[in-house]
């Protein structure tokens, strides 16, 4: 695994259990096959505050940035 990928892996440790669980399932299913561009989108998305991220994942808030749409779609399926 590249260093970039390993760094993003740690960014998936969150303040809210809800996000930990969604991200853990996502990592298991999708992480290894993410291309570099999607990985960068994920890292950008992970800079969000936990409550905002959870609201986007559970659909109660709209996706706030166009580049997050793809990876958010993957998280919503997790």
């Amino acid at each position: 695994m590249t260093i970039d990928r390993k760094r993003v892996l740690w960014q998936c440790r969150r303040a809210l259990l809800e996000l930990d669980l969604v991200l853990a399932r996502f990592l298991e299913r999708d992480f290894d096959r993410l291309d570099e561009e999607t990985l960068a989108d994920l890292e950008d998305l992970l800079r969000c505050e936990d409550h905002e991220l959870w609201a986007m994942v559970n659909g109660s808030a709209p996706c706030a940035k166009e580049r997050w749409r793809g990876v958010l779609g993957l998280l919503r399926q997790s």
């Binding site: 440790r13 969150r14 303040a15 809210l16 259990l17 505050e49 936990d50 409550h51």
Partner: peptide, 11 residues
């Protein structure tokens, strides 16, 4: 271990 505002106090 994580950025301060990502601590569990957030919950």
């Amino acid at each position: 271990k994580v950025f301060p505002t990502r601590s569990h106090t957030v919950a």
